[in-house]
Design a protein around this nucleic acid. Structure first.
Lengths: 356, 356
DNA sequence: ATTGAATGCACCATCGATTGTGCAAAACGA
DNA sequence: TCGTTTTGCACAATCGATGGTGCATTCAAT
C-alpha cells in the first residue's frame, strides 16, 4: 500500500520517514552526499525510501534555489518543415544525452515574438539557448547577455554571439553549378533562363544570392538582376511570384534556384494550377533537403545542410568558457535527384524493431 | 542609465525603490492589486518602476509558490515529419493565444522515454499535457493522474483519459477506395495487387487495416492476408519489406496503401534503388499528407488528418471540468494527387509581408 | 463625538530544494 | 588518558513570489 496517492513526496516527507534532516535527504538525492560525508548506509536507506514513495525532485524549487533549471532551449522560426524539425529532433537527442531537458519553441520569424519567447525562457532560468534562424539575433543576444545565459546562433548569424551556420555561399555555388550543368545537357542555357526565387533580406539569402550570381557570371557570362526574386519566406508569396512570371512569359524559367523548402512549397502550389507537362524540361535546385521533394517528376537538386554537424559544433562551442563571437561555417551537401537520405529518425530505429 | 546590468530585478528590488512592501509589488505586478485594494496611483508608480528596471517575474519562484507553471506540454513521438511538426506548429499558436507557454518534447516512441519525459514535465509543474501518439497512453495517464495534471490523448487513444483521434477506419476506407478506383482506370485490379505497408500494433494501424480489408473485400471480393505488411514505423524496415517483395515478384504491387509518411520514406529509399520507369503504373495511397509527396511522378493519394480540428477539439475538452474518458473521432480528408494544401505556416504569412 | 465600515497596505508563513557552517561523536595517535 | 582528526549529520538562511491576516487611517453616518 504505497500511499503516494496524495501529493508528490518532498524531501521533508522523506526526512520524517528516514529520521534524517531535509538537508541530508537532499544531498543524498542529488548526488552530493559523498562530498557531504553522508554514511553509505544512510544514503541507501534514503534512496530506497525515495523509490518506494516515487520521489522526484521539484525542479522549480531546485531551479529557484540554484538559479539553473536543467533546461536547454532551442528557438526555432517554425516547426513545420523538414529542416527545422530535423534540427529539433537532433537537438533533443543531443541535449538528452547531456542529461538535461530540451525545450523547443518557435517564434514565427517575428522579432517581437522572439523577444517575448526568450524572456519567458529566461524567466524559467533556462541554462543555455540555441537560437536558430532568428530574425534579430543581436536583440536576443542582449537579453541573454543581461541574464547571463550562454547562447549561440545557428543558421542565421549574429554579430555579438558565436554563430554556427551553413556555408551558404559555397552551397549556393554548388547548387547553381549543378543546375546549370544539368541544363547544359539539353541545350546550353541563357543567363535569363536561370532564376532564383525566395528568401528575404537575411544573411543566408544574401550569401546564397551572391553564390548564385557569381556562378552564373562565371558559367553563363552574365547575371541579369531580374533573375533574383526574393519573395520572403512564405509559400503564398512565392506562388504569386511564379504566377506573375508565368502570366508574362507563358512558361517558367528552365533553371530554378529555390531558396528554401518553404518557398518550394509555393512552387508546388503554382504547379498544382498547371498541367504537369508544362514543366517537363525544368531543373530545380532547392536550398533545403526534403526526401519527398527529391523524387518529383523533374530533376530536383537539393542542398542538405548538415544539421547534425552544425549542432555538434554548437554544443562544442557551448562548452568553451569564453567563446568568441565568430562565425563558424559548416559545409552543406549537394544531393542528387531521387535520393532518400537517412535522417535523425533513423537513430531511433532500433526501438521500433525491439518493441515489435 | 538604467542599471539593470547586474542581475534581474525582483519584487524586493522594486519594493525598496518604491517604498512599498514586496507583497504590494507582487500584487501590482501580477494583476491582483484591485482585489487587494491597492491605490491606483501606487500601482502605476510600481508599474512604471517595473518597466524602467525591466522587471520580469521569476517564473520558477511563482511556479513553486503556486504549484502551477503556465506551461502546457505536447508530447510527440518524433518531430521530424510533417504530421507531427504541423501539430507542434498549430499547438504552439493555440497555447500562445491562451496566454500560456507551449513546451513541445518528443519521446521517440519509447515507453520508457515517455514516462521519464512526462515525469520531468510534471516536476516542472506543467499545467496541462497533450499526449500525441504515445506508445503507452495509459502509463502516462497514471503519472498525470497522480500529479493531478489535466491531460488528453491525441492521435492514439488511451482507455483512461479522453482521446481525440483521427477516424482511421473511415480514412482508410476512403483511401483504399480511391486507390482501387484509380487502378480500375487501367484494368480492374486483382485482390493481390493491392498491398498495405507499414505501421505496427497500435490502435491507428489496426483501424486502418480494418478499413483497408473491408473495402478490399467489398470492392475486390477478397482480401488475402499476405497483402498486409506491418513493418513498424521505420523507413528502413519498410524499405526492406519492399526489397523483399521485389526480389520475389520482380515488381511492386500496383496498388499501395502506405501507413504513414515515415513508411513512405522507406518506399522512397526503395525507389531510389530502381529506375523510375519500373513503377510507371503504380498508385500509392499514403495515410499522411506531405505536400512534396503529393507531386511524385506517380499518382499519390493522401489522407490529411485534421490536425487543427483535433487540437481544437482537444483544447475544448480540456476546458471541461470532468471530461469523460471517451474517444472523439475527427474526420480526415482525402487529398487528390498534385495538391498543395495550405498549412499552419500560412497563418504567419502576414508577418513576412509586413517585415519586408 | 462616537461608532462602523471601507480603504490601503505591511507582515509573515510558505512553496521545496540547496549549501555554508557548526557541532557532536567516533576514531586515532601519542 | 588526553588532544586531534575525521566522520556524520543537523541547522538555518536563502532563492523570488504568493496570499491569508491584521492593523492603522480615512470617511461616512448617527
Amino acid at each position: 500500500m504505497n500511499h503516494q496517492s496524495k501529493k508528490k513526496a518532498t524531501i521533508y516527507d522523506l526526512s520524517i520517514l528516514s529520521g534524517c534532516s531535509p538537508s541530508t535527504v537532499s544531498a543524498v538525492l542529488n548526488g552530493t552526499w559523498q562530498k557531504r560525508r553522508i554514511k553509505q548506509s544512510t544514503a541507501e536507506r534514503i534512496q530506497s525510501l525515495a523509490e518506494q514513495h516515487r520521489y522526484t525532485a521539484n525542479l522549480q524549487a531546485r531551479g529557484l534555489r540554484s538559479s539553473r533549471s536543467g533546461l536547454v532551449g532551442l528557438l526555432l522560426p517554425v516547426h513545420d518543415n523538414r529542416y527545422f524539425s530535423s534540427m529539433a529532433q537532433t537537438f533533443e537527442a543531443e541535449v538528452r544525452s547531456h542529461g538535461k531537458c530540451p525545450v523547443v519553441v518557435s517564434a514565427c520569424r517575428d522579432p517581437v515574438e522572439e523577444q517575448a519567447t526568450v524572456e519567458t525562457l529566461i524567466s524559467y532560468s533556462i541554462d543555455e539557448l540555441f537560437i536558430a534562424g532568428a530574425t534579430d539575433p543581436d536583440g536576443v543576444h542582449v537579453l541573454c547577455e543581461a541574464a547571463g545565459i550562454r547562447h549561440i546562433n545557428i543558421d542565421l548569424p549574429g554579430t555579438k554571439a558565436p554563430s554556427v551556420i551553413s556555408d551558404n555561399y559555397e552551397g549556393a555555388r554548388m547548387l547553381t553549378q549543378a543546375i546549370i550543368q544539368r541544363l547544359a545537357a539539353t541545350g546550353s542555357p541563357e543567363p535569363d533562363e536561370v532564376y532564383l526565387f525566395g528568401g528575404r533580406d537575411d544573411h543566408a539569402t544574401r550569401e546564397r544570392i551572391r553564390g548564385f550570381r557569381d556562378v552564373k557570371r562565371q558559367m553563363l557570362g552574365a547575371d541579369p538582376d531580374e533573375c533574383i526574386q526574393p519573395t520572403g519566406y512564405s509559400p503564398d508569396m512565392t506562388q504569386k511570384a511564379f504566377e506573375t512570371y508565368y502570366a508574362r512569359e507563358k512558361k517558367v524559367p528552365r533553371g530554378l534556384f529555390i531558396n528554401s523548402s518553404i518557398n518550394f512549397e509555393g512552387f508546388l502550389r503554382f504547379l498544382a494550377q498547371h498541367p504537369h507537362e508544362t514543366f517537363a524540361d525544368i531543373v530545380v535546385g532547392c536550398y533545403d533537403y526534403d526526401p519527398f521533394g527529391s523524387f518529383l517528376p523533374f530533376p530536383v537538386l537539393m542542398i542538405r545542410q548538415d544539421v547534425a554537424g552544425m549542432l555538434a559544433k554548437a554544443f562544442e562551442i557551448m562548452e568553451e568558457s569564453r567563446p568568441a563571437a565568430k562565425i563558424h561555417l559548416i559545409a552543406p551537401e549537394l544531393v542528387q535527384p531521387r535520393t532518400a537520405l537517412t535522417g535523425p529518425l533513423d537513430l531511433i530505429r532500433e526501438i521500433d524493431t525491439f518493441t515489435r
